[in-house]
Structures are given as C-alpha cells and as structure tokens.
Write a protein that binds this DNA or RNA. Structure first.
Lengths: 230, 230
DNA sequence: TAGTGGTCTAGACCACTCA
DNA sequence: GAGTGGTCTAGACCACTAT
C-alpha cells in the first residue's frame, strides 16, 4: 500500500457513484460511518468528500447529510489561451508583428467596458500573431493608461503586449467570451483569409482590484479549434 | 473573528502575491515559518498554500520550497453548456424537436472516435433546440448502442437525448472542442440562418470507463456567445 | 543527507439546519 | 435540541529532491 489514502478513498467513492451503488439523489453514509468502513480518520473521509462535492458530484448539507447530485453539472477547467503557447504547442515558431499602436479615444463599448470617461484616451494596439511566419491570429487591444501608464515605454515589438502585461499585473481577474463571426475586410487581410470566412473569436477583459487593465479581441485563422477536457 | 482561518490566510497570501510583496518567481517562507507568523497550525497554512498552488499562483516542490509562479497560467472553470439551461437563462421557454432518428453506419471519423468496427451501426439523431419556438441550436448526435442500447426505447420527443443520457450514464468523462464554421445548407435551414453565416460549434464526446457513449456537434444560431469568468 | 512539502491521525469545538 | 458537516490543532511520519 504505497497509495495515498485520501486519493484512494476518493476514487473508491467515485466508483460507487458511477456504478450507481450510490444512486442519483440518494443519501450516502455519514463521515463517521465511512471512516470506520474505510478504516481511516474522519479528516481523510472529509477531504475526499469535499473534493467530490467541489467537483459537482455530491451535495453536502449540515445535518442533512451528503447526497449524490441529481443534475450533475459537468465542469471543466481550462487554461485561458495564450497565443504564444498555442503556436508553440503545434511545433511552430512563434513571432508577432505590431501593425499599429496609437493613443486615441476608444469607441463607446470599450469606454464602458474599461470604465473610462468619454473623452479619455487609451492605448490601442493591433498585432498579428504568426506561426512560422504565417498568420495565426489577429489581435485588437485597448489598454487603460491610467492603470498601466508604463506600457507606452514597453518594447512591444520584442515582447508581446500580453506577456508584458502578465508580468506587470500578474494576477488580474477577468472574463472571456467565445463567439464566431464572418471575417470583414480588415480581418481577412490581417490573417490572409477569404472575406466572409467563419472566424473563431475570443474576447477578454481583465482588471485588477476593480480597475480595468485591458480588453482585447483575438481573431483566429480559419480552422482553429479550442480543446478542453471534462 | 467569525472568519474561517484557512480562508483568511489564503486571501492574505493572495494579496501579498498580487501586490508584489511576494514577487514573481520569488521563494516564499516555509510552512512552519508562516504558521508562526499567522499564529495557526501548519496544517492550516498547508491548506491555504495548496489551494493557491491548485489555482496556478504558486509552484511547490519538496525541499525546493514554494515559489510564486513566473508565468501564471490563468484558469477558468466553466460548466459545460447544457442547451436547456442556456435557453432558460435568457428567460425563454425551452423546447426541442427531433428531425430524424435512424440506425446507420457512421462516417469514418465517428467510427474512430466511438471505437466502433467499420460495419457497426449506431444511433443517429438530428435535433433542433428552440427558444420560445425560435431555433436556437441544431444538434447532430451519434450514440453507441453497445454502450446504451436502451436509448432506442427512450421517449426522445419528450426528454432531450442529452438529459436522458445524463440520467442513464451520469458521471461520464469527455472532451469538448470549440470552433467556428460557415453554415452549409443543412445547418442554415435548421436554424433559419443565411448560408455562409459564421456559426459557433461545440463538439463533445463522452465516455464511461473507456467505453464511448456519444459524440455530438452543436451548431448555435448566429450571434451566440459563450461566457466565462477567470 | 538534510530540509521541505505531503499526508494521516485523534480529538476537539463550532455552525448550520432539520425535525 | 440533536445530528451532521466544517474546521482547527498538535504531533507524527513519509517522500521527494536540492545540495
């Protein structure tokens, strides 16, 4: 027995749920009972049960006991796409090219997303990400200068804006939206696609302590797929 | 102090990372030292640190100590899309319509994904999901009859295949792929879209103990967005 | 080999919530 | 009020790995 107990216990319980020994919606034994059954401390049982509950397989209530979740919500953890890694994962060499970088007043939707005043200016950046010098994705990004003024002096032709921001504001939170659009002329030109081609789009907005940092849209070359595991 | 210690400790540490007190890549104090600093048991510190490491903010090594992750991989947990809930979340009434259901030999890619023999037949289902009786998404699904033979007798006009399968094989694993395609004639007709419109596609394959259950493609009506939080 | 995190235990007390 | 999960503790031993 070189196995780890709480892990073994968790897997055993998962098995009992999957096989239906513990049916959907059924009440399972209490922690003390399970502890004697598995021959370990209650703490260990607790740890295993909490992991399963965290996974959406169980629902626990004080006094009410633990039940198998009736409408299991399948969850998946996925790493947010970092273009450089996506490119390198396919075995290609990553590079990027800054098309334009200006200081200007953003359009209304960006103003509201970044919590800016109507006359405020922001840093606007257009970049093409390349895989082995072939277009891979086109990026439009707005950066809130009040939050990150130093980006104006960053060497953005060497390091991508994304990686520079990650190092400057390392643990920001944010949201992500996936969608699909037909390529307009600008996108088509940027990634060498045909006008109207279906493009996979990722929009990301990040902030740090309620101050907005940056918002960006990534337009991927046709055929791009995003994988995830349950 | 009605607060939970391990939670408080975790948040405090997160703060120290975000403010840069613990810099990117830096070694942070050991568990025993932190335990005396925070005035709690090492177990509690351990729990907080493990949570942060699990979150991708820390990297821990025995003997090597704990470091702040240099290239933080932002992760997001998201619930896999259940069409009914997506529809109901927008305040609309969900319904669905089975377009066709047949037993036939799948095309090669499905054969290999479901681990079938070339002559095997599988259950093929085409469904349209409706929001207030307007098309919302079109679904093409293959079901492995060797794994779930009873689906042939399921009342699929009343309960969607997805929900029926969830109740029958509740905790299967699987993978998910997101992409974008241009609508072909069949998709365009099914969801009342224009030919060539960019369509958001979700492909999902699930299995149970290495036996493949089902694989499906979901084609969402134009303008659909999948939202997630970091 | 020594130092760090990984885990388990036994016991204790608290907090919620069902009856 | 009583039963269940939630959490903390102090101590112990193990497992990995940097030096």
């Amino acid at each position: 027995m070189t196995k780890k107990s709480h892990d073994t216990v968790r897997l055993s319980m998962q098995e009992r749920i999957e096989t239906g020994e513990w049916a959907l919606g059924a009440l399972i034994p209490g922690e003390v009972e399970l502890a004697t059954e598995y021959g370990c401390a209650r703490t260990t049982i607790n740890r295993a049960l909490q992991a399963l509950a965290n996974n959406g397989m169980l629902i626990r209530k004080r006094k009410g006991g633990t039940r198998v979740c009736e409408m299991p919500v399948r969850q998946a953890k996925f790493a947010i796409p970092i273009v450089r890694e996506q490119v390198e994962a396919t075995g290609n060499k990553y590079s990027h090219k800054v098309i334009s970088s200006t200081l200007k007043t953003p359009p209304a939707p960006v103003i509201s997303r970044l919590n800016l005043h109507p006359e405020d200016k922001a840093f606007y950046l257009e970049t093409v990400h390349l895989a082995d010098n072939r277009p891979f994705a086109y990026e439009e990004r707005w950066v809130n200068l009040k939050a990150v003024p130093t980006i104006l002096t960053a060497p953005l032709s060497e390091i991508s804006a994304n990686e520079w921001l990650v190092k400057s504001v390392p643990f920001s939170s944010g949201d992500v939206v996936f969608s699909a659009i037909n390529a307009d002329q600008k996108i088509a030109d940027s990634i060498e696609a045909t006008l109207g081609t279906a493009i996979f789009v990722v929009e990301r907005t990040t902030w740090y302590k309620k101050e907005f940092i940056t918002t960006l849209k990534l337009f991927y070359k046709e055929g791009f797929q995003l994988y995830t595991r349950l």
